[in-house]
Nucleic acid binder design. Structure first.
Lengths: 214, 214, 214, 214
DNA sequence: ATCTAAACGAGACGGTACGTCAGGTCTTGGT
DNA sequence: ACCAAGACCTGACGTACCGTCTCGTTTAGAT
């Protein structure tokens, strides 16, 4: 997800021997996994179920993905293929609000995305190897994208000198994941604004707007 | 965890017939679960494994706990039995720092605690029923404890009028869980101080101390 | 098969703990295996198929039998439970004819028996461990039974001195198995008489009857 | 085996277009199958294993052989290419002893032969189609060869009038296969002599030699 | 000197069955 | 009534091979 997809593209040697991979099968698998996910929930997705729903042999799944989590990570990439553009809005608060509300909006628009994120984070907790993968493929690219926003603000002089930028990243993504995982409050547009404002205050941004009355 | 255990104590009728529940068995089960957790990780803990390690029949586990997650939640309560006292330190930032550094310290002192929290949160994602339980038994009590700190600050006039206290709770616990789950940075004492300070800034606390030079 | 079943009866300690083995399940499994065998042939019998047909979990089969061949050997014992009585008919040729025609008749009366014998012998060729089992449980008991017939003849003085009795056993059972496996000729009653007569001649029995005109 | 191979040679049209069959590949396949057979046993030979060991695509095997058993039958022909000559030794017992001891000696000299025979007979039990093939290609030619020996004896007047020659064939080959399959006794030269003698007795041959003192 | 067609190596494909693991339920005898 | 033991049915796991199907690459005879 985000603009990082190019990074993870499989690099295929110019010519390969043997029967080439079936793109049909790949798409059927990803589509079946997505369908099962939305109909039965992440926990009820099984390799056997996906294979049956996709009309595919189990081995064809295992040939290309090492585990359910690896498959679901690809499903996430497929579903969230659209990059979240990071336009420069001229101020830290504006940039933050743009980044966060775009992110929140994506999660709201495609209900599979929260389900995928929650399931992937869950599996990462039960499988240390996959946690490393998830950090590399998902967590770090998103942190880098938000870090770029902060770097721009720093260049503008909007950050207090010596401000710990990792702290701000943890606050922003912590808020996001916490709401996602606990589900006690939605990722509403208003929440994006409030979070952006709070981050600006925490960052000591002199330009922090007056809090709107609502 | 925290002082909430009394709330959820099973209510036993004053007198019951038949052989009473074996406290030995209960303790053996919890101890075996804790032992397996630390030795093999949450994901590798199975009911069968716990029963075998505890020298107990599977049924004895199912009689008292409905699932692995319910058992592990009790293990967590057992392990984190000590209440985190919430002394009034006289200022929002002081109270926050106390609350957070006590929390972080507990997680550092007892390595099973982070493992349990991560595993429980993971299972909650895969089992909606347990997510509700986890919120009731763990998430909400902790939010209430921190909310008390904020209420005290509000009484002191340290919060900006109209400050969204839930936002602050989400920021605080989001930070905590995000670090716990992703593992990219430790829950160090310094992080507790930095987080407390950032929360004060976000809360618009007029008393926010000058950021210490480190 | 034959009277050897007592030899292989599982000896259970007087009292065992835990849920006792389900005799219902055992019978359902054996019956389903027998049914599949007759309907689809030995090669098409699978553990999964038997489990499904018997309404039983695969594990319940694997708990009690180590492999398809072990299960089918038990099916054979079940099916051929009736002992073949070895009456003393007063002469080698009479005894031989009785033994052989009883054996042939059993195979003709219960069509599953030839199918089982052929399948078991086949599996024994592909699995050396099972060959040893088959010899112990099936081959040797039958050889012992026929050896008793020969010993009686020897006591009567019907065998040439120094006659190699193993040779006669190999001739008799070789004939039987060869017809069974190759299927070029049936195990007809007349074949039993002819075989008995030929064995008497080979044994140098002085009492060998004139060959009937047919 | 025996001299029958010419009978089953594939008939190739005088000229065919396209790339001709690779003799290298054919030999590599047969050699790899033979090697796997001796190293791992018949049951562990798989088409995939043979293809990998021969450095050949699976399709190249399926193009020329319909199944593992068909391939192994060709391996047997390759290995037992030398015809067993059937010299006329002047008497039934001499001819029989020659035929049988040549056969036994071949099996002893080339250990792959017993392994192949056992495996082929096993597969024939599990696959009725292949049983027919095996009878046509292996069983019947050998019976015909031995039948020739008996016909010669009959011409010499060594057989009792009306002697059932099929009975003698079944006795001879039954003995051979039974020892091969059960493995309780070797195919030793002495066994060939004893079997030949017993067959002569069973055949009522007047020339039956006195049994040697051993 | 092309062109055509079949065989070749490689290996992906949809399947079947394997043998194992654990889940959650049940049925014993023993305390 | 509870307990340890352990058998039960269920369902998914990951693996091994099956026999079939593309691929791109030879290797011949026919044109």
């Amino acid at each position: 997800m985000s603009g990082a997809s190019a990074t993870f593209r499989c690099v295929e040697p110019a010519s390969r021997r043997g029967r080439p991979r079936s793109e049909d099968a790949r798409q059927a698998i990803v589509a079946a996994a997505l369908d099962l996910l939305t109909r039965t929930g992440y926990g009820a997705v099984t390799i056997e179920g996906v294979a049956a729903a996709a009309g595919v042999g189990k081995q064809t799944i295992y040939r290309w993905w090492s585990s359910r989590s690896a498959l679901m990570l690809e499903v996430l990439r497929e579903v969230a293929r659209l990059n979240i553009r990071d336009r420069d809005r001229g101020s830290l608060e504006g940039d933050l609000e743009g980044f966060l509300s775009d992110t929140f909006a994506l999660a709201r628009r495609i209900p599979a995305i929260p389900a995928l994120l929650r399931g992937l984070m869950a599996e990462a907790q039960l499988d240390p190897t996959f946690l490393a993968t998830l950090r590399r493929e998902l967590i770090e690219p998103r942190r880098a994208a938000l870090a770029a926003v902060l770097a721009r603000a720093e260049a503008r002089g909007e950050l207090r000198a010596g401000q710990d930028k990792d702290l701000l990243l943890d606050l922003a993504f912590g808020f996001l994941w916490y709401r996602l995982l606990v589900g006690h409050a939605p990722l509403a547009p208003r929440a994006a604004r409030a979070l952006a404002h709070a981050l600006c205050l925490a960052a000591g941004s002199s330009q922090a707007r007056r809090r709107p009355d609502r």
